[in-house]
Design a protein around this nucleic acid. Structure first.
Lengths: 160, 160
DNA sequence: CTAGAATAGACAACAACGTTGACCGTTCGA
DNA sequence: TCGAACGGTCAACGTTGTTGTCTATTCTAG
């Protein structure tokens, strides 16, 4: 158990991705059983980005690191599925304020509850101290900004 | 710094994704500077899945968790970019064995070297012991199987 | 030995996603 | 007041994975 060559460097991204995927998969399996069978990985993240204050498509686009068109479409989809509500800002008729619907809030609350539970389960598996240490180390590694959400394009194979 | 409620459950996936994205981004920034400007996140993973033994599109599809058509297209793209070579199996004319080209091997070797370096840099940042502990914890958390590679579809917003 | 099932690969049509480019209506500031 | 900036939407395009279909080859009963 010595210094820096215990594992090859290429293992780290695989371990990180695997842990992330398992978490998200379990989350959505659970959500599907509690009234949100149509929830998708992105939804929770977007809804969280919307927040209780509400936002606009452009703000969201900036926060998510995608174009305003992409954000607009995502919002339209989430609205169609009943997770978001859009309304024109009375103070500025250009803006359309996006807010969480009741269903959206419910998804967010359930997601938080499930994730807390999943975290607890993992704490039971590896030990609460080790899990907390993992989070601390990840926080120390990661920059200050949150992740980007252009995952499909970012992860894609082709263009530059 | 006590037990299980030090961080909310929803922080964990964000921390994991963020760490993963940073790692992959830095890897490809580095690769772009060393003769592989057209390398994409998926490439290294696919090439690693091909391995020194070679495979076929169908095998690859199974390993990557996508359809054989998708795997076939990916292989075609990688071949076009000079990372892979395809040849008909003399023992079974249905099969077309996919192997790494010299350029493909080079990408894989450089990727390994860069990832080792990135890991070393992180070990310097947070401490070799903490990084090793992080890897151990992640390994304990993750199932035995590797991650899936249908990331775009899996992460997507729409269908079920 | 032969006929039907299984396999490997390819082609076409489709849906989903993000991107660029263009456009309209609204707001703000010189 | 008039032009620039901003928010939002529409259309076109490229990439990616998917399902469905088809051919060629190999395997396996009978």
């Amino acid at each position: 158990m010595l210094s820096n060559s215990s594992r090859p460097g290429h293992a780290l991204p695989l371990l990180l991705l695997r842990a992330f995927q398992e978490l998200i998969d379990e989350l959505h399996t659970e959500l599907a059983h509690t009234g949100h069978p149509d929830a998708r990985p992105m939804h929770g993240f977007v809804l969280q980005a919307v927040g209780p204050e509400g936002t606009t498509a452009v703000e969201l686009a900036r926060a998510l690191g995608v174009t305003k068109q992409a954000a607009g479409r995502t919002v339209a989809g989430l609205e169609e599925q009943g997770y978001l509500v859009r309304a024109t800002d009375p103070a500025d008729s250009r803006r359309k304020v996006v807010r969480l619907s009741t269903r959206g809030q419910d998804l967010l609350e359930r997601s938080a509850a499930v994730l807390d539970d999943l975290r607890r389960r993992r704490a039971d598996t590896v030990g609460a101290d080790r899990l907390a240490a993992l989070e601390d180390t990840l926080a120390a590694l990661g920059g200050d900004s949150g992740p980007r959400w252009d995952a499909p394009a970012w992860f894609g194979t082709r263009p530059d």
